Simulated assay, not measured.
Amino acid sequence: MAEHPLLRPGARVLAAMSGGVDSSVMAATLHHAGYEVIGVSMQLFDKKTARTSDGKCCTLDDFQDARRVAYEMGFPHYVMDFEARFRDTVIEGFIQGYLDGETPSPCIRCNQHLKFSALMERAESLEAAFVATGHYATITHADGRWHLRKASDPAKDQSYFLFHHTQATLARTLFPLAGLTKPEVRSLGAELGLHLAEKPESQEICFVTQDRYDSFLEAEGRDPGRGDGDIRHLDGRVLGRHRGYWRHTVGQRRGLGVAYAEPLYVVRVEPATNTVWVGGEADLLGRDLVARELSWVDGPPRGPLACQARIRSRSMEAEALVIPLPDGRVKVAFAEPQRAIAAGQAVVFYQEGELLGGGWIDSQPE
């Protein structure tokens, strides 16, 4: 288990338990190591509509799995109601992102506002020194500062989803799985006798109960009501009609319903004119972006910052220069063109495997 410089023997730890393998092994490992573990599962949406299908987390079945692990290990487990906060900070932002023509990333918002904000508040009320999660990332301490680095297993690294961390939050956070691979976590779960050691991973957004995200917006009654609009090529030609601009995202190829001589991709979604702009593969390439709502692990840069930037969770980092702007945003200039830069997604900055910070790709240029 990765050690934290401030972790003392027998310390009380609030363990965030989703009911999956990672968080269960994390909590069981802490308990087995002698820490006073309080297991907590977060109720984030209406339990009556929570599904039990594969690929989703935070369902009633997941809560039962987490409770069973706590019972088997011998530590307390609670389900805490964060439904209203989740609705305000995550679901509403997800909906508004699509209405603004963006591609939202709700899992990062959940980490920021629930796991490492709301849970830390609850931990303080329970006199727990730390909040522990099953994320794969590494916290170190050197030269009087906290550092957040990638996990040792590149295939499981989740640091991209944690760019909101600060010195204050890292001092109270534990990532016990940082040095393990997924097979090692499953093996450890089996050694500990956990019944869910082979449980499949969750893949989809937990609160979207429909097969498509646009169906979720319809079910929420959030169709902006602008009706059909034009699908335009970047050269200005109208190629077809869409059934709602918010049904389309940058980089999309399928579902356009447009016949053309070469493959077409969504290049830009423009709510103001109810237009979906399309082009060829080359039109998806961009050399720069502007990011808003910046968060820095150890404070913002005082000038241009040379680093590696990642524009989506499953992409590789690319060499970039981060340039602070007068309005608090930053411009990110890439050494090489990047494919399908999508507003609403996170751009995260690294140097040699250390996470420096990140922000949200803005739909508004300089």
Rank of each mutant, 00 (worst) to 15 (best):
A2K: 14
R8Y: 03
P9N: 03
L14I: 00
A16G: 06
M17F: 00
S23Y: 02
V25Y: 03
M26D: 08
T29S: 15
H31G: 12
G34T: 07
Y35W: 05
V37M: 05
G39E: 12
G39S: 05
V40R: 02
S41D: 08
L44R: 01
K47M: 14
K47G: 12
K48G: 09
A50L: 06
S53M: 10
L60E: 12
F63Q: 09
Q64V: 06
D65I: 13
A66G: 01
V79F: 07
V79S: 02
D81N: 03
F82Q: 09
E83I: 12
R85E: 14
Y98G: 06
L99E: 15
C110R: 00
N111Y: 12
H113F: 07
L114P: 09
K115T: 04
F116M: 13
S125W: 08
L126H: 06
A128C: 15
A128I: 09
F130N: 11
A132C: 13
T133C: 06
G134M: 02
T138E: 08
D143Q: 14
L148S: 00
D153C: 14
Q158L: 08
F161T: 09
F163N: 13
Q167A: 05
T173P: 05
P183E: 02
V185D: 05
L188D: 00
L188A: 03
G189Y: 03
L194G: 06
H195L: 09
E204Y: 14
I205N: 12
T209E: 13
T209R: 14
Q210T: 15
Q210R: 14
D223K: 13
D223R: 14
G229D: 15
R237E: 15
G240Y: 07
Y245K: 01
R247C: 13
H248N: 15
T249K: 10
G257Q: 01
A259K: 11
R268T: 07
V269E: 04
V269M: 10
T273M: 12
N274V: 06
V276H: 02
G280M: 04
A282E: 15
D283G: 03
D283N: 13
G286L: 00
V290K: 01
R292I: 10
R292C: 12
L294G: 11
L294D: 10
V297N: 06
D298K: 06
G299P: 04
P300I: 00
P304T: 05
A306M: 07
R312F: 14
E317Q: 08
E319L: 10
E319C: 09
A320Y: 02
D327F: 03
V330F: 08
V332N: 01
R339G: 04
A340V: 03
Q345S: 08
F349Y: 10
G358M: 07
W360S: 11
I361R: 07
Q364R: 12
E366K: 10
